[in-house]
Amino acid sequence: MLLPVYLGLLHRSEQSLAHSFRQVADGHAAEPDVLHLCRTLAGQCDAHAEALAPIIDRYGEQADDEPDRLHAVALGSVRSGPLGLLRDLQDLYLLASLVDITWTLVKQAGLGLRDEELLGIVADCDAETGVQLSWLRTRMKQAAPQALVVAS
């Protein structure tokens, strides 16, 4: 069974996303909504990673032997200014999208396994990931015209 590969991927991705939300929060602290919401959402990601613990206990967590072609690593550093904010939020969006589709695929496995506990955890966590994506889209759409048309 190769579900442990995906559990590992999900676990690491949530940890990367949590770390990245915190980086963006601190790096764009002059935008108070970004500061506070990114911290809140980082907390959600921590909780998601923890929520996986009983599932990982059961099935294990396994590194992927396949070489990563598209790297999904945490943000190394943040940019500055209106365009930098937009780019950083967009990076978060890519990471959160990876998390989101990984939850979806783990859910598919859970359905195949008829694992009610796993499905319950997926339902709680993936809904929050969905809201994270919605918030990032909302915030980026608001910021884009000013950042791309007027700011310099």
């Binding site: 919401l37 809201v131 919605s134 918030w135 889209r137 909302t138």
Partner: peptide, 10 residues
């Protein structure tokens, strides 16, 4: 909106 984050429902 989502009341925790302000994300729009759409």
């Amino acid at each position: 909106h989502d009341l925790l984050t302000g994300a729009t429902v759409g």
